Amino acid sequence: MSHAQRLWELLRPLGPYRALGKYTAGELAGEGRALDGAEEQLESLEREAFLDTAEDWGLERIEELLVRRPVAGTPQGRRKALAALLRIGGDSFTLAAVNDNLKGCGLNAVVSETADPGVVEVRFPDVPGIPDGYGTLRKIIEDILPCHLQVDYVYWYITWAMVEERFGTWGAIEAGGYTWEQLEKLVR
Rank of each mutant, 00 (worst) to 15 (best):
S112I: 10
F93E: 03
E64I: 01
L59Q: 02
N108Y: 06
L86V: 02
V110R: 14
D56M: 04
A81F: 06
A109R: 05
N108Q: 09
A83Y: 09
G77F: 04
C105N: 12
N99T: 01
R79F: 04
A109S: 06
D91H: 08
A84G: 05
N108R: 13
K80S: 13
L85P: 04
W57Y: 12
L82C: 05
P75G: 03
E113K: 08
G104N: 07
L102C: 06
V67I: 15
S92G: 03
F93K: 14
V98G: 00
V110E: 14
G58I: 10
R79W: 10
R87N: 04
L102A: 08
D56Q: 12
L102I: 01
G104P: 06
G77R: 04
S92M: 00
N101Y: 13
N101I: 12
A96N: 15
D91T: 09
G90F: 09
D100W: 02
A54W: 02
T74Q: 02
E63H: 07
D91Y: 08
I62A: 09
A96C: 02
G89W: 09
A72K: 03
T94Y: 06
D56L: 08
D56F: 08
L65G: 12
E113T: 13
S92R: 05
V110I: 12
A54M: 10
L85V: 01
A84C: 03
R69P: 04
C105A: 15
R68M: 13
A81Y: 05
A84N: 09
R78E: 00
L86W: 11
R78D: 01
G89M: 05
G104F: 06
V67S: 11
R61A: 15
V110G: 01
G77P: 12
A96I: 06
I88F: 06
C105G: 13
F93P: 10
R61Q: 15
L85Y: 09
P70W: 05
V110M: 07
R78K: 12
L86A: 00
K80R: 15
A72W: 00
R61E: 15
T74C: 02
N108W: 07
L66D: 02
L95M: 11
V67M: 12
N99I: 01
E63S: 00
L82R: 02
V67T: 14
L66P: 03
N101R: 12
T74A: 02
A109F: 08
L59C: 03
G77T: 04
S112G: 10
